[in-house]
């Protein structure tokens, strides 16, 4: 039987307390949210203040120099372009290949499980450890030396997990009916993937790919580890040339004792951030084009 009803309805807490607490909390949350944005603004202003005076076409077009005012980022910019082009090719081919295998061909078994767990864990390996890997394997063991090629291979391994994850997501978003339709017309599984699924998934894959590449452009530690030189007085012409990249050049300027080089570092940072902004703009444009197209 039901116990007798409690007519002593409890009195809830006062509305003022509720209101005050709610307001205090929302203010705190807004404060926290703005903290990240304030930090970003402070960082950008700080870098602009220090570097804008040095930044010029001449800065972009000069080689490093022992005198701060004559030093420039030409070889670093060229090195970044070189390394990134090769990294892009290696990482794209291997990343998309692995994704196609896992998503379109592999039977779910212990092997794919291990590959998946492995990819998750690789994404958490510190980048400097990849540098040690590159140093031991590419630089010494394979004898590539401190070359563009060794740097590109190291960075490709670093961003491989990110690209595999993005590419798998892209492939998964293509509905199975597309594959069935292609195979019903007599194409093989590979033909269905090559001519129907992959093109349909490409915008998503490319967006993830560019964001991963942007990550590689900003990486410093692994390239320091494989020994990107800090004073490179030429533009690399083959993949076996030695090189430096923007972040390493910036680091080298930061670590110089003379304060004038700080301004060079800041100017180099501005150049680096502009490069990253352009890459992000491309990724966002791709994403928008994709989402404007009708979804499945």
């Amino acid at each position: 039987m039901i116990p007798a009803i409690a007519r002593d309805r409890p009195i809830p807490m006062s509305r003022t307390v509720r209101k005050a607490r709610g307001t205090a909390f929302i203010l705190l949350a807004i404060l926290a949210t703005s903290l990240g944005m304030v930090a970003l603004a402070a960082l950008l202003l700080d870098v602009l203040r220090d570097g804008i005076g040095v930044l010029s076409l001449e800065f972009i077009n000069s080689f490093p120099h022992y005198q701060a005012e004559k030093a420039g980022a030409k070889s670093a910019l060229a090195g970044t372009l070189w390394v990134m082009s090769l990294t892009a090719v290696f990482a794209m081919v291997a990343g998309v290949g692995a994704a196609i295998y896992l998503e379109e061909f592999a039977v779910r078994n212990w092997f794919t499980r291990i590959v998946e767990i492995n990819i998750n864990n690789l994404a958490g390996v510190p980048s400097v450890v990849y540098g040690l890997l590159g140093l031991a394997i590419f630089v010494y063991w394979m004898g590539l030396g401190r070359s563009v090629l060794a740097g590109a291979l190291t960075l490709a391994l670093l961003i491989l997990p990110i690209i595999v994850v993005a590419a798998r997501e892209g492939l998964r978003s293509v509905p199975p009916t597309i594959r069935e339709a292609a195979m019903a017309l007599g194409s093989t599984r590979w033909q269905a993937v090559r001519f129907q699924v992959l093109p349909a998934a490409m915008p998503t894959i490319l967006t993830g790919f560019i964001l991963a590449l942007a990550r590689a452009v900003g990486e410093t530690a692994p390239l320091i580890a494989i020994g990107a030189f800090t004073t490179v007085l030429f533009v690399p012409t083959t993949p076996t040339d030695s090189f430096t990249v923007l972040p390493v050049q910036i680091y080298s300027w930061i670590s110089k004792p003379l304060p004038e080089f700080r301004e060079n570092a800041a100017a180099g940072i501005i150049v680096l951030l502009v490069v990253l902004m352009l890459m992000n703009a491309v990724a966002i444009t791709l994403r928008n084009i994709y989402s404007r197209r009708s979804r499945w």
Binding site: T33, G36, M37, A39, L40, A42, L43, D46, V47, D50, A214, R215, V217, G218, E219, T220, A221, P247, I250, Y251, I254, R262, A265, A266, I269, L272, L273, L276, N280
Partner: peptide, 24 residues
């Protein structure tokens, strides 16, 4: 507005944050 700003912050290279630490 906030989400993209945070994404930009997440994309700042760490060498730049190191510079921010010693110069600001």
């Amino acid at each position: 507005i906030v989400k993209p700003v945070l994404e930009v912050l997440a994309g700042i290279p760490t060498v730049v944050l190191g510079y921010f630490a010693i110069s600001f």
